[in-house]
Computed example of a mutant assay.
Amino acid sequence: MAKHGSDSGVYDEHGRFVNSKFEEIFHKYARTHPDALTSDEMSSSKETENPKITEDEWKILYYLAKDKDGLLKKDTIRSVYDGSLFEKMAAEKINKKKHR
């Protein structure tokens, strides 16, 4: 019931993750690195007739989760879909503090 017109189809009508639809995002838009999206590639995915996620969602995700090279990695985006993104980010932050 929470699907919107620009939904990517990564979840089916029963809420199950559809890996082929997830991979399709990278097949269509990842031009620089097959396992990551750049800021420009995310912008091009928003400009299509059926954008993958809204512009604000992309901006927030990119700001929070890009790596040191400015890439939004496939594993990171997958962690948004499986709900583990913030747990991973917290663990990374704790790990960085331990190594200071």
Rank of each mutant, 00 (worst) to 15 (best):
K66G: 05
K96S: 13
M1Y: 02
T32V: 07
M42A: 15
K68H: 09
I77G: 04
K96V: 03
K88S: 12
L64E: 13
N19F: 09
Y11H: 06
Y81F: 15
N95S: 14
E24W: 02
S8A: 12
S84Q: 13
N19C: 04
L72E: 08
M89H: 03
A36T: 02
E92P: 00
K68V: 07
F86D: 08
S84F: 02
R31T: 07
E57S: 13
E13S: 11
T48H: 01
R100M: 12
S43E: 14
Y11L: 15
L71E: 05
V10L: 02
G5T: 04
K21S: 10
H14W: 04
E23C: 07
I94W: 07
E92Q: 13
Y29M: 06
H4E: 10
E24H: 08
N50D: 05
A65P: 01
M42F: 02
Y11W: 13
D56S: 08
Y62H: 11
R16C: 10
E47Q: 12
K73A: 09
S44C: 01
K73E: 11
Y63H: 11
A36Q: 00
I25Q: 03
T32D: 12
D75Y: 02
E92G: 08
F17V: 08
A91Q: 14
E87P: 01
I53Q: 03
D67I: 08
K73M: 12
Y29C: 08
E49R: 10
I53L: 11
D35I: 01
I53G: 00
S20F: 00
E47L: 13
D75M: 02
M1E: 07
P34Y: 04
R16A: 13
E87R: 14
E23D: 15
D12G: 09
E92A: 13
M42C: 15
E24G: 07
K59V: 06
S84E: 14
H33S: 03
S8L: 05
F17R: 06
K21A: 15
T76N: 02
H4N: 05
Y11D: 01
G83A: 10
F26L: 06
T38N: 02
K88P: 04
I60M: 12
